[in-house]
Design a protein around this nucleic acid. Structure first.
Length: 468
RNA sequence: GUCCCCAUCGUCUAGAGGCCUAGGACACCAGCCUUUCACGUUGGCAGCACGGGUUCGAAUCCCGUUGGGGACGCCA
């Protein structure tokens, strides 16, 4: 049997990070088994389902590198088929018409709650003669659910989960306006699309009982289910806007690499022995449902940062330049020239091991393009007084007469001077760093000197000397 | 409120009754490396929620308590 999985988000305007992990698991499982990964947009709520909202979803998935097979399917477009199935159920006596008004149902629920009961439809139209139907009321169609026994979900993550059928009521399948409800649409679509494995958030676990009843009523074979525990915020509460970034594209903006996100999301709720760094190729080889944990996990930025730093170090230089370019241009408010791009490319290796995100990379590289005189930060300024100025004067002279402008030879010049004058190298390097980068933290300073070039270096040193 | 699920270091996890003196990773602390900060490397801190069982033996099985999460719509 060929594996067919799906990701079925409703368009909320962005790809929720929990949804992203669900999509990743489905994608991985399909790729692992040489199956298909389908995408279905649950767009039956017309108000929310704008084109922008759908595009945001697709963008998020594309960024994460989760490619789906075939065209994305619109659930809304399938509403006639959903209605058709409900009418089949009506014909075979598995469903019935309910003429209750929303007000009547609300009153009923209110009464039940007052008695401390679980609010449930009491089945008042289940066996009632349709001839008693009030005139002018369009009926909703409900499932004639079993009233005895129990419904059991054999879940690949949660195990065997059972509920008494008395806990479930006769759910609405088709609204009085003829549109299908979510529970029904999902089942029909999953069946028609040939989905073999439904991997989704465990907020759907209790929905599964009702969906199973629909499968049974139609005589369809249900797919395998795997309900993945949810992702919580650092404080253990359900992940929400309050926790900051909930959308995948926000992570892109914060400078995370898609491969780092994939690795992080994979390890959040799934494990394979002691493996931590799991590139996607390896993940496809290893991914299984057995490795999914059963308890909810908390989102941890520190670990994401660590992973992102790792993947930045691994990343190809040209790619990093391309990704950082727009961030720099936004900061500078102008495009980078060819020369400046080359400068960035040469400086990149120095930044790679010291940044966790592309944003940090862009921030760190800004000094390269700053207009003279640069503005040193507080700590750097402190290094550029008294002794610092003397150091710069001396180094300026040494550099000015240097015949070979390379990091190695310039470093040798400074080292020789340090030794001759009995000073520690750091004593000389720090004022230099402050003068050239405006900071006390930077890539190796002689690399910076080489990359900046003779004239810019000497000019910045002079600026710092002259500064009050 | 009713029903369902869950419970190992601060966080993510390994653990399928004896391989557990509970392992790894992140974070944190210290040493080394070093021109800064990182990277790298060495070491350290830190956990089986609690209470009962079952068993020769329990982090692992059972029950309860507590705590957390989810579901209860003519939303998805």
């Amino acid at each position: 049997m060929t594996v067919v999985t799906r990701f079925a988000p409703s368009p909320t305007g962005y790809l929720h990070i929990g949804g992203a992990r669900t999509a990743l698991f489905n994608w991985l499982f399909a790729r692992r088994h040489g199956g298909k990964f389908l995408l279905r947009i649950e767009d039956t709520d017309r108000a929310r389902s704008t084109q922008e909202a759908v595009d945001a979803l697709l963008d998020g998935l594309s960024w994460l590198g989760l490619d789906w097979d075939g065209e994305a399917i619109s659930q809304f477009a399938r509403k006639d088929r959903h209605a058709e199935v409900v009418h089949q159920m009506l014909e075979r006596g598995a469903a019935y018409r309910c003429y209750c008004t929303p007000q009547e149902l609300e009153a009923m629920r209110e009464e039940q709650r007052a008695k401390g009961l679980q609010p449930r439809y009491d089945g008042r139209w289940r066996d009632r003669d349709p001839a008693e139907a009030p005139a002018g009321v369009a009926p909703a169609i409900r499932l004639k659910a079993p009233q005895q026994g129990e419904t059991v979900v054999h879940d690949r993550v949660q195990g065997e989960v059972r509920v008494q059928n008395t806990q479930l009521d006769d759910m609405i399948l088709l609204r009085s306006d003829g549109t299908p409800t979510y529970l029904l649409a999902v089942v029909v679509d999953d069946h028609d699309m040939g989905i073999t494995h439904v991997i989704r958030g465990d907020d759907h676990l209790t929905n599964t009982f009702r969906q199973l009843q629909i499968y049974h009523a139609m005589g369809w074979t249900p797919p395998e289910f795997a309900h993945v525990p949810m992702i919580l915020g650092a404080d253990g509460a359900k992940l929400s806007k309050r926790h900051g970034a909930t959308g995948a594209e926000q992570y892109r903006e914060m400078g995370y690499l898609p491969e780092a996100m994939r690795n992080y999301l994979l390890r959040l709720g799934w494990g394979h022995g002691d493996a931590e760094i799991i590139p996607t190729e390896q993940a496809i080889e290893w991914f299984d449902l057995e490795g999914i944990g059963r308890s909810p996990s908390r989102f941890d930025f520190a670990k994401l940062d660590n992973l992102n730093g790792h993947y930045i170090r691994q990343a190809d230089d040209d790619r990093l330049v391309a990704l950082t370019l727009p961030l720099l241009e936004k900061r500078l408010g102008r495009p980078l020239s060819e020369d400046e791009r080359a400068l960035l490319a040469r400086a990149l290796p120095g930044f790679k091991p010291r940044v966790k995100t592309l944003v940090e990379l862009a921030d760190g590289a800004m000094f390269l393009f700053a207009k003279r005189p640069i503005t040193p930060d507080e700590k750097a300024t402190a290094l550029l007084t008294g002794d610092g100025k003397i150091v710069l004067r001396t180094l300026s002279d040494l550099f000015a007469s240097a015949k070979d402008w390379t990091a190695a030879s310039l470093e040798q010049v400074v080292r020789d001077h340090a030794e001759a004058s009995g000073q520690k190298l750091g004593k000389l390097a720090q004022p230099l760093r402050a003068a050239l980068t405006g900071s006390t933290v930077s890539p190796p300073i002689f690399d910076v000197v080489e990359i900046l070039g003779r004239s810019e270096t000497l000019a910045r040193m002079e600026d710092a000397e002259k500064a009050p």
